[in-house]
Design a protein around this nucleic acid. Structure first.
Lengths: 257, 257
DNA sequence: TTAAAAATGATTAAATTTAATCATTTTATT
DNA sequence: AATAAAATGATTAAATTTAATCATTTTTAA
């Protein structure tokens, strides 16, 4: 499976070697230096590797280490494609907020190559992005919710009230037009609401499988969003309804290659 | 500062960063490129790091167990023995603060079996402790300093002012009776000072090799500490002086196995 | 204290890697 | 099959890193 894709071959090689050169990969993969470099740029933009002038390693700080490049492509193609679209909204120099979650982490992986200010509630996102010098990272602080390893509580909300970001990216476990997005605890719901509060653009990133369910605590009404990004597996009737709303609807096509 | 010390500093930095350049280390360690390169050659010969033309990583295939590197470089074992003593001060149910650093991370490793509230500025410590259900973790929040991957700035200090912990554990890069503990940036110095401010017991954990040097910004006077934990390599004269102070002095015996 | 030895820092030439450009090959579409 | 589009490879100039050299500072030992 993985031998078909050259990017997978590179990741496989990196898993087995601590620190390699482009020359190593040229020999191992049997491709030209130019091709290897072009591949490395793609992998670097996804944050799964780190490069210097002359060296390449796998990024050992990426959460869920065993979730390798190929697994990401197989199991999370919807999140990937949603993140692709979401990341394209960000411009160099922007100040953005990333909510806690795996979809927002995917967005983070796509933003490593540009100067940014990023505020987040997510420990993984903070640690990951802090490796990149052109990105100024702020974590909102507060009690750590261990299911999501992110900050909850009033302290972080205080910081959120003091900033005016360009874009806020919100993720969720459940969403619908009627109930908006909901969360399993009051604290999580409140943090999300605060994240959405001040941003110029408020973007929901949520895959279609989460549509229709809901948790106990309401967090954000759908009318608060300026944009919604979801995938093309969304039900047709719901799709029609979503198109009629005030937010811009973006549908990703997670065609698996 | 001794040469062993700087090699330890490099290893500490590499543990917390995936792939670094000589330039990164020049800034982090405050030595010239030539010196860093000479150090890297030594570490490379020991096999604990890997280098390319332009990049350095820790060798992640070397067991991070208490063997290979620590036998060669003793400061790690000093930190271990200091952490042993420091951790023994903590009782189940306590609320404690852990400053950012590798010594305080060692303390955290020894506290996972008891119910605790832990407040920290360190992303690694927060992420590590959040795995343990009986430990409630709070991160102070704020901008991430990427050399230490910990929180700095006014926002975190605000939280620190609102809590009254049982114990605060402070680490440092430089300490002395005259200058107290000092830090390379004002923001780091201020955060440390705030960490020490409200705790019932304020404990400095600092290995002997760091004694006598100082950075630009003063952070905490020695008179603010209730306890000091250091190792038995401390100079005898200094030892005598330290014993005369108001704090309790604890000397760890880092017997090298 | 003084002299010798070791460590460190600064400078610049050499070596290495990368980016940019363009030709060629492969793949996709009609 | 023909054409367009995309991916790959080769070439060279530019950028970056290193090694070598020597001056300076710090440490060690007499």
């Amino acid at each position: 499976m993985s031998k078909h894709n050259r990017l997978d071959q590179i990741m496989d090689y990196l898993k087995e070697h601590n620190l390699v050169t482009v020359e190593d990969l040229v020999i191992a993969i049997k491709a030209s230096p130019a091709t290897i470099r072009r591949d490395l740029i793609k992998l670097d933009e996804q944050g799964v590797i780190n490069r210097t002038h002359g060296g390449v390693t796998i990024n050992r700080f990426i959460p869920a280490q065993p979730t390798t490049y190929e697994k990401i492509h197989r199991n999370q193609s919807e999140k990937q494609s949603i993140a692709d679209i979401a990341a394209s909204f960000v411009l160099a120099g922007d100040s953005i907020i990333l909510d806690a979650g795996t979809t927002t982490l995917e967005i983070a992986r796509r933003l490593t190559h540009m100067p940014l200010r990023v505020i987040t509630s997510d420990l993984h996102i903070a640690l990951f992005l802090s490796e990149f010098k052109q990105i100024e990272v702020t974590i909102i602080g507060g009690k750590i919710d261990d299911s999501s390893q992110s900050c909850i509580g009033e302290h972080g909300r205080l910081l959120l009230r003091q900033i005016n970001p360009d874009i806020a990216f919100i993720s969720c476990n459940s969403w619908s037009l009627e109930k908006g997005i909901t969360a399993p605890t009051e604290e999580k719901a409140l943090v999300k609401a605060s994240i959405a509060e001040k941003a110029n653009r408020v973007i929901l990133v949520a895959d279609s499988s989460k549509y229709g369910s809901y948790s106990l605590f309401s967090s954000i009404a759908m009318s608060s969003f300026t944009d919604v990004v979801t995938d093309n597996k969304i039900n047709k009737d719901i799709h029609s309804q979503l198109k009629l709303q005030n937010f811009k609807l973006h549908i990703s096509n997670n065609s698996i290659k």
